[in-house]
Design a protein around this nucleic acid. Structure first.
Lengths: 129, 129
DNA sequence: ATGAAAATGATAATCATTTTCAATTATGCT
DNA sequence: AGCATAATTGAAAATGATTATCATTTTCAT
């Protein structure tokens, strides 16, 4: 299988991507940077940010936000899902969001929006709380 | 990132809440602060942050994140609706979210969650951008 | 009126992210 | 190879939102 990203802007992208993969496909820029440091790789924080940004532009990774606003990068291809979060104990259930995807797509199209993404979370009290 | 704020009630809450309302029920802390300044109200940025945080704790407003990670506060009102936000110019379209309400309700019930709420936003590029 | 407790806000600290820019490295051309 | 030039890198500084500190002011019960 030939990969279609042969001509990346940065030579560091493969290294950053590999680290993101080995982190479980889900990490912040700072975390990727620290992982690479610990592995003894020589790279600057700036370059990590740039590599992740270009991977986002290439649509190879998604960018999301933690609750505190820190950006986390996720390998595309990981199944897109949402969460039910308990207001009491913080417990989280992962759920599929097929319905929401369609909802977001159709409404965005209806209003002429392109390049669409969305966020959706459910909050409530879990059975235990 | 530790957070020390606990919940307390503030006399500024009503003023901040009113400003958030007049902003269309959707604004960042910095925006609320600037609005109040322009209106000639005397208030500190710190107090705006604290007031918004306590309103969140009181479940009077929701907290969401812009694409750039900035926190935006939304009135949890009876007129529950969602938004399509343009990543380019920040323009916002209000939409009804009937489908999402049902999605949230049924999924939460399925997992035994009670007292359910949700957040959902759509991001994209508007026709002009 | 008095004092304790709550609230305020200026200021400084924090932290992720971006910008700057000089130095290094790759690439292409003759 | 040798040289020019563009691309890449990363340390350091800048930026900007948010949070912590703390001295001061306000509220309120007595």
């Amino acid at each position: 299988m030939a990969r279609c990203w042969e001509h990346w802007l940065s030579r560091s992208n493969p290294r950053v991507l590999h680290t993101l993969e080995s982190a479980g496909g889900f990490a912040s820029a700072q975390e990727v940077y620290q992982l690479m440091q610990r592995e003894g790789q020589s790279i600057g924080l700036t370059t990590v940010y740039r590599a992740l940004q270009s991977l986002v532009n290439e649509k190879i990774v998604d960018i999301l936000r933690r609750d505190d606003g820190e950006a986390i990068y996720r390998l595309c291809g990981d199944s897109h899902h949402h969460h039910i979060v308990c207001k009491g104990c913080g417990d989280t259930v992962e759920i599929e969001g097929g319905a929401v995807e369609k909802w977001a797509q159709s409404l965005a199209a209806e209003h002429g929006y392109r390049d669409v993404g969305h966020s959706a979370e459910i909050f409530g009290l879990c059975p235990k709380c």
